[in-house]
Design a protein around this nucleic acid. Structure first.
Lengths: 143, 143
DNA sequence: CTCTCTGCAAAATTTTTGCACTGCT
DNA sequence: AGCAGTGCAAAAATTTTGCAGAGAG
């Protein structure tokens, strides 16, 4: 999570201009743990930035991903989700309510090394997705 | 990997009819390790089944996924990929050539248990994706 | 013979692109 | 002031849907 100042610096360091829209998209992402997709981001930003467009949301997240201040998630839904937390962590999605939660403290470094050895690839990144039923939905179901 | 006979049985057991198209889609998937998407599947099938349509490809893979004879993969590209191997294994994609390879023999059961404990979810499935540069592209690059 | 399945075309979604205008540096 | 960025609308790409005719059980 970066401050506006830090994000501004990273943007400039990579040759991108600092604009209110870019700061706003990042702030909206950093303010939530829900891993929103473009539409959720757009809806969140719309009230404060009535001129915000989908094109800007998409162009912005692409840049934020390129400069490594956000991660793009792909849980198998029709649209991409975005995450302002770039630290190594994983995700779990509830098959019932569709929510996507963070899974911190699951150490994947052993598997990455194993995968590197087995595949011969230079591994640059990895994304692990778990799917199941969240505690909340499990309880609701039992009623 | 199932024989046509086995697939037919599973289809019927789940109340689905056995059609040449369904067998053909499965066979095409089972015959490759390239984890094709709908378009690749369609192109492969087109010569043998000139009347094959995208609608049928999509409807068929949805059914095959439902009856658990294929898996849907999501590497973060714009389209889904499909895999006839439903055993637990993972995938690695080359950032240069875009190929998706299987990663067998990486034991994820420990992580699944850990994730289950940490999240409180009933975990029903998981997909791990690794990204990097494949040996072939690495060599090509060094020239 | 019935009812599901196929295949076409049209629709729905998500994402990308072209271009005139705005605004960051 | 110059040039990247925004925002609109249109385009592109993938996937879904409706429906008439075909074919599996």
């Amino acid at each position: 999570m970066l401050t506006s100042q830090q994000l501004s610096d990273v943007l400039r360091a990579n040759g991108y201009k600092v604009t209110p829209q870019r700061l706003a998209v990042y702030e909206a992402l950093a303010a939530t743990k829900s891993h929103p997709n473009a539409e959720m981001l757009f809806s969140t930003l719309q009230p404060k930035y009535p001129s915000m467009s989908f094109a800007t949301v998409y162009k912005t997240v692409e840049i934020l991903d390129k400069i490594n201040v956000i991660k793009i998630l792909n849980t198998g839904e029709d649209s991409m989700r975005y995450d302002a937390d770039t630290s190594i962590h994983h995700h779990i999605q509830c098959a019932v309510c569709g929510c996507v939660e963070d899974l911190m403290n699951v150490d994947s470094s052993g598997l990455v090394k194993e995968a590197e050895k087995l595949s011969g690839y230079d591994i640059k990144g990895h994304q692990f997705y778990f799917f199941g039923v969240c505690p909340h939905c499990r309880e609701a179901r039992q009623n």
